[in-house]
Computed example of a mutant assay.
Amino acid sequence: MNIAIIGAGAGIGLESVIQALEKGHNVTALSTKSDHIPDHPNLIKINGNATSSIDMTKTIKNADVILITVGTKNKKATTLFSDIAETLIKVGRELNFSSPVLIITGFGAGESKNYVNFFMRTVISLFLKDQYINKTEMEELITKSNLRWEIIRPGMLTNGSATSTYKVLSRLQRGIKVGKISRADVANFLIDEAENQRFIHQYVALSN
């Protein structure tokens, strides 16, 4: 399988690159800092920007599935996520792209904001409010497009090791508990979902 990973230089993206290669997939990895990605014979590294139509086209044109794993440490107002969504939709239309697109946002984006616990609501409000506003815009753009999307909303991310015992929650309901999850486990879900595609056109929350 040819897997395109957007935002592959760190975090969930880098974990996804490593795990996809370990499972024998071919990977095209787009990052503004691709030198952080270890070399591999089944890996194509593209040093570029996910908001560039040219870079996006190079990355996804031969993909069987796309993983969007972009994050930012910028806590100020941003349009990064919605800009990427607009670029992906434009390029996807030009390529007549029909393969699945798995997109990481976060639990607290979109309708899930009404289900976060008090601690996470406080963290988002104090430190990540603008990010989550834009992640919500990203979700809205993607879900209204013709892409075969899947929105993945992990809980609070950690640098822990992969456990493969995480919860996959495909329905928002009163009392839902979404806590911490390691980036490695999120990557594990992404690669498994790339292979099996069980939740297309659904929103999925991940938690340990």
Rank of each mutant, 00 (worst) to 15 (best):
K45P: 13
A85S: 12
R198H: 10
K129E: 05
G24M: 01
L206H: 02
I176E: 02
V65S: 14
F97A: 04
T28V: 12
T105D: 06
R183V: 03
E15M: 02
G71C: 06
K135M: 14
I5R: 00
F107L: 05
I191E: 01
N159H: 07
S99Y: 05
I104K: 10
L102I: 11
M156A: 15
V101N: 01
I6H: 08
S31Q: 06
P100Y: 04
I37Y: 03
Y203G: 01
N42G: 07
I12A: 09
R183I: 04
L21G: 01
F118L: 09
N2V: 10
T28P: 04
T105A: 08
K144D: 15
D185F: 05
K45G: 10
T59A: 14
I66S: 03
R93P: 01
T105W: 04
K113M: 13
T122H: 07
G160W: 00
D55T: 06
F81S: 00
G48E: 01
I152C: 02
D55C: 09
I200F: 02
N96I: 04
I60C: 06
N146Y: 11
T163F: 08
Y166C: 07
N146E: 15
A205H: 09
L30G: 05
S52W: 07
I89V: 15
D185C: 07
T163L: 04
E15V: 01
N159P: 04
T57N: 15
I152D: 03
A63M: 08
D185Y: 01
A50H: 09
Q202G: 00
E193R: 00
F81K: 00
L80K: 14
T32R: 14
I142V: 14
N159D: 15
A29E: 07
T28H: 05
V178R: 04
I89M: 06
I176Y: 02
T158P: 03
I66D: 11
I12S: 10
L43W: 01
